[in-house]
Design a protein around this nucleic acid. Structure first.
Lengths: 206, 206
DNA sequence: GTCTATAGGCCGATAGAC
DNA sequence: GTCTATCGGCCTATAGAC
């Protein structure tokens, strides 16, 4: 029993190391650079262990996606339930680090059925959460669903933020400052509580 | 001379065939599936010809990007100069087929310096054109640049349309119909001349 | 669960004949 | 400009010993 526990603890540690290595490679070199040999090299393991623990490379991508999405959704729920949900959701959605991995999975999803399915499911789940937040905020401000349906607000917020993040990652920033100012001015009317003096959208990384 | 001409005609034909094949593979299988052997197979040629005519694979991607962007920019200018520029720009920007290739180049740009540079340059050029269109439209409708700077309008339009196109390609459509209706209602106030009975955003493919 | 060994395959790119 | 031939490398995945 003791050895069984130790064994499964070791196994969990190895699995985590493999997933961490995969994530690192995806962030830095893109999904196309992920190979069992490279993953193993980064994790300090033999490449055969990748297949032993995860099967095919597709299975590995899927496992990493699930781990990532689960953590993301949990913290997204927390942000939604905070006292300042719109600000927190907006800040999260323009965060460069988070978007990097998402961008890779989106690119991967175009050509891998399994990833596409999981990504679509995850996106719908997030959208529903954000739509509920918007429904509450719009109602509080007396804006009728006919004027702006909550789901439209959440599609717009998600779309604008993702576009800004994507462009910024590619070195395009024409009009970004003006757009950020425009959007945040609007969000403030809707309940954003950030004071004007604070720098927006620059979450510090530890 | 005659043989020289014929020779360079043949060369141009081969180059076009290689670029066509590359484009087809990128659309259908993604940039990661592009290899000199596969390109040659699709084009009905030997793989060495790919290197002979284009050098490295990076050079090939770059050549295809330039061809694509040149054609895109030309037709974009035509759309901007039409009598109904906002509608035409919007329709173009949510076109699924056009966005498929752009998405691949964006994914590629994250990891290839040369592509990233070219993409950034192209994006700025397009943005400036669209911003000029918006400046004209907003002025015609008496909306001051303080209320909504033209560059903000063009960032928003580009961002929203790209987000919708990306999500649709991945099988996510929650809130899309409502958002399309919302945006197009707004665009109509700004000079879109489509009649309400026409189906929006469904450009027929031959 | 991790090791060695290996099958079987696709890749980019170049050399040299024609 | 296109051909044949080929080098050297990285890839996924599995088999079988320990």
């Amino acid at each position: 029993m003791a050895s069984e526990r130790r064994s499964s603890e070791e196994s969990a540690k190895t699995r985590t190391a493999i997933l961490d290595a995969t994530e690192k490679i995806m962030r830095e070199k893109g999904y196309a650079a992920v190979s069992s040999r490279r993953v193993a090299a980064v994790a300090g393991l033999k490449s055969q262990l990748v297949h032993y623990h995860f099967g095919t490379m597709d299975d590995l991508f899927l496992a990493l996606f699930r781990r990532t999405e689960e953590a993301f959704f949990t913290s997204h729920m927390r942000a939604s339930a905070s006292s300042n949900p719109l600000q927190m959701l907006w800040d999260r959605s323009i965060d460069a680090r988070g978007n990097r991995l998402v961008a890779e999975f989106m690119a991967l999803a175009h050509h891998r059925e399994a990833i596409r399915t999981e990504l679509a499911r995850a996106a719908k789940r997030i959208r529903n959460v954000e739509t509920a937040v918007w429904a509450r905020m719009l109602e509080e401000h007396g804006i009728s669903p006919e004027t702006c349906p909550p789901v439209v607000a959440s599609v717009l917020m998600a779309g604008i933020s993702r576009a800004l993040a994507t462009e910024a990652a590619l070195g395009v920033s024409v009009g970004h400052a003006e757009t950020l100012a425009f959007v945040e001015r609007y969000l403030q009317q809707m309940g954003l509580q950030r004071r004007p003096t604070e720098t927006p959208a620059r979450k510090k990384r530890p």
